[in-house]
Write a protein that binds this DNA or RNA. Structure first.
Lengths: 322, 322
DNA sequence: CTGAAAGCGCTTACAG
DNA sequence: CTGAAAGCGCTTACAG
């Protein structure tokens, strides 16, 4: 049998309210406090979090839902979220949606059941606005509903900058390889920036941008190179897409960066030791995580929060461009 | 105000016990059941998980503690754990210890407070046996205490196999680069297998094996190559270590695999698109995760569980050996 | 400052 | 099968 505040109270000859007050820093006579503290120690008392939660109607737990954990971008994101959540004393529940809608609905259910106080949703599904009503959510790169705050980076400008860099490096036949988001998302600004920049310079666009699952990048890269064998530059709109593009290009006999220059999105992940460093647009993942956690805190506390926060991504030069 | 079983009960003109019984599949008259179900639907009732937990003294939550999330091995491990936990209907709390002992103690505290039912501990600290007493724990690669079950792979045999492979590929001056575990762990079998295999073939050992933090691999690799510039083969005892070894070797002008062959531990991570594939010993991460979750289930349920489970790692050939 | 009591939302013997 | 009641372990007005 676990020891409860009741045991502590009778051991210290005080009421349970008093024990609760020393637990929560309420005002209690210094002598009584020490008496209670001593009783707690001698009884090896540990407060029960569940009972506390039931009374306070708050769990101190948030969830972070990502499409996949085992991925350079998302694992770093989750790592940062965990660290930021710690600042608020929050625990973080992780769920990998694996592109299964049930996993996402599971989070909504957990909020309804009061298992968690709120969630960070990185998802590619559309959800019924009614299902999300009243749920403390925040998200990345897109507005889940029109009143759910989200954090994004300047996809358009950073992509344009990357393309200008390829062009200034001598590329004339620049392609775009992407895995298209299946829902409206600011990630789509990458393709738009590509098209605009090509048009601006009078260059012909070469696009393969398809809806795929994680792990199916190779098919897209293969298709791209069969369709546009003459490219001298490519913008790959995602980390795994860029890595795959590089690998496939090498296999097909392109020489990088001499014959073919590659720029990716999300490039140098510190712990992954990519063998050759990619020139890439880098999103400020740690900032994005911090911001999104702060936003979630605001939402949970019922504060006014900005609906859209844009952080700056920037081009970092590596070995895949001249 | 949230709607509770009390509301449902009075709406359906039954007792709260009856509502609880339809919630938990207890025996209740079919007509009454439908009445209650209808009331739940009309009132949009969702049961409160916290109240349920308080009564059942069970949370349905486990934690997984890893040294770092943003890492090919650990992120895949966590991903698999989450998937396996799902089978038991468990939610999983993630914590990245970042080699901070407070984070690890936080988990112990969460168990004491009944925030979680148990935890998977992947850690490099020694813990006081008394602190862990009565905590449902399982771990990886080492026995946290003498009665905490753990899962490991056949580190010794797999390492020996890798070295035999280097030797059969013509290597004579084979080095060992590692980040030494700071506590007793089966990972140490890798160094032992190296030493034994060198001795068996009458080869001179070349070892740099140091206690470092994640992110400090480069210093170890630098030191290794300054100390043993003449190597023609190297066994790098970890994924990031191997990647770093490769990078440093290339920078120093070695040609891989012609002048220098490299074998790592944990090599081809599916979603990371390493540009050049590493020859490496691969641990069965998914199996390890499944096994460790099953073990934790056994421990939580108070069943008899094996203390040590060994799974097979095996050598997978890539482009860094001949 | 402090104790007794009510209540958070459930589950579970206990009678009937 | 079903209702009334007790209780899981806390917190919080309410008196004193």
């Amino acid at each position: 049998m676990a020891v409860t505040i009741k045991d502590v109270a009778s051991y210290a000859n005080v009421g349970v309210g008093t024990v609760s007050r020393v637990l929560n820093g309420g005002s209690v006579n210094e002598t009584t406090r020490e008496l209670v503290l001593k009783a707690m120690k001698e009884l090896k008392f540990t407060p029960n979090a569940t009972a506390h939660r039931l009374r306070k109607n708050k769990t101190g737990v948030i969830a972070v839902l990502v499409p996949i954990i085992n991925h350079p971008f998302f694992s770093e994101f989750v790592e940062c979220v965990e660290e930021e959540a710690d600042r608020y004393g929050w625990s973080v529940l992780i769920v990998s949606s694996q592109q299964k809608i049930e996993k996402e609905n599971g989070i909504i259910e957990k909020i309804r059941r009061k298992e968690i106080d709120g969630a960070i949703f990185v998802t590619h599904y559309e959800h019924d606005e009614k299902d999300l009503m009243g749920c403390p959510f925040v998200s990345i790169d897109r507005p889940l509903t029109k009143d759910i705050p989200y954090v994004t980076s300047n996809n358009y400008d950073a992509t344009a900058e990357a393309l200008e860099y390829l062009i200034s490096g001598g590329c004339k036949k620049i392609g775009y390889i992407g895995s298209k988001p299946i829902v409206n998302s600011e990630v789509m600004q990458r393709e738009k920036a590509y098209l605009d920049t090509m048009a601006k310079h009078g260059l012909e666009p070469r696009i393969v941008n398809e809806v795929i699952m994680h792990g199916e990048e190779r098919g897209v890269a293969d298709k791209f190179f069969s369709k546009f064998p003459d490219v001298d530059g490519v913008f790959a709109a995602g980390y795994t897409m860029a890595q795959t593009t590089y690998t496939v290009a090498i296999e097909k006999g392109y020489s990088v960066p001499d014959g073919l220059q590659i720029v990716g999105y999300d490039g140098s992940f510190k712990n992954w030791g990519s063998i050759k460093s990619l020139t890439a647009v880098e999103q400020p993942i740690a900032d994005m995580a911090k911001t999104v956690v702060d936003l979630l805190y605001g939402v949970i506390e019922g504060k006014q929060t900005p609906l859209r926060t844009v952080l700056g991504a920037k081009l970092v030069k590596g070995a895949t461009t001249k």
